[in-house]
Amino acid sequence: MPPAPDAATLQVRAVTAADLAAIAALHSRARAAYHRARFPDAPFDVPAERARWHDAWSRDLERGDTPALCAARHGTVVGAASYRHRPGPRPAVTLHQLHVDPGHWGTGVGRALHGACLRDWHAAGVSRAALDVLWHNHRARAFYTRLGWRPDPDRRPAPDASHLTLTLDLGRAPAPGGR
């Protein structure tokens, strides 16, 4: 049973190097949870996976062009998100990662991280956001659909595709309230 939502105790802030181990662990747990239905015997939450994601998040922080946010409740990191600005004629971003520790699914962590990203994107004048979601991750697809994301009409998935590209038109989406 997830802990009761307590918005007052949830803090969304920039990721620091001190957060990397916690983010890698929750990223691995989240991947294991959403892959378990499709690949029941695959070892997704193991030390090698946590090391892989620690290195990936560390590289993102070092890049300087990949803002990363984390959500902490009572000082414990329970979610993380990162995005990259995309070049082009219209300012756009790709939501690169958004993961919530499975023990905190349904408690508002994902929505808080998403809202913080939206505020940053609106402030930067971004007009369009995109993300790729695993086709079989119905929970994530439903989450993004509730937040206004739609399948990208320019990138229809192939019949054997493992991912679905979703977009969000920020010109039409109202800016969320203050952080």
Rank of each mutant, 00 (worst) to 15 (best):
P102S: 06
P153F: 03
D160L: 13
P151H: 01
A56I: 02
R119Y: 10
Q97F: 15
T76S: 06
A8Y: 02
V77T: 08
R141I: 05
V12P: 02
P87Q: 08
P157R: 11
T165L: 05
I23H: 02
D60S: 13
V15N: 05
P102C: 02
A21H: 15
F44W: 14
H138V: 11
C70F: 08
D154M: 11
F39V: 06
A37P: 14
M1V: 03
R29L: 08
Q11H: 13
L118W: 02
R111P: 05
P153L: 02
P176M: 03
R139T: 10
Y83K: 00
N137Q: 11
D55I: 07
P89D: 06
G171V: 03
P159F: 13
T9F: 01
A30H: 13
R38P: 11
H104N: 13
D19N: 08
S82H: 07
A92E: 12
P3G: 07
M1G: 14
L26K: 07
Y34V: 11
G88K: 06
R156G: 05
R29Q: 12
H27I: 04
T94R: 07
V46L: 02
P87C: 11
F143N: 05
L170C: 09
P40H: 04
E62Q: 14
A68Q: 08
G79T: 01
A71H: 04
W57D: 03
A140R: 00
T165Q: 12
L170W: 01
S82L: 05
P5I: 02
L10Y: 13
P2K: 04
W121K: 00
G177R: 08
L131P: 05
A158D: 14
T94M: 07
T165D: 10
R146K: 13
G125P: 10
Q11T: 15
P5K: 00
F39Q: 09
P174T: 05
R59W: 12
G178I: 08
A72W: 13
A32N: 10
R128F: 15
D45E: 06
W53S: 00
A68M: 14
A72S: 14
W149K: 01
G75L: 04
L98P: 07
L113N: 09
A81M: 10
P102E: 04
R86C: 15
P157K: 09
V126Y: 08
H138W: 13
P102H: 03
R128T: 14
A32L: 07
R119P: 06
V93P: 04
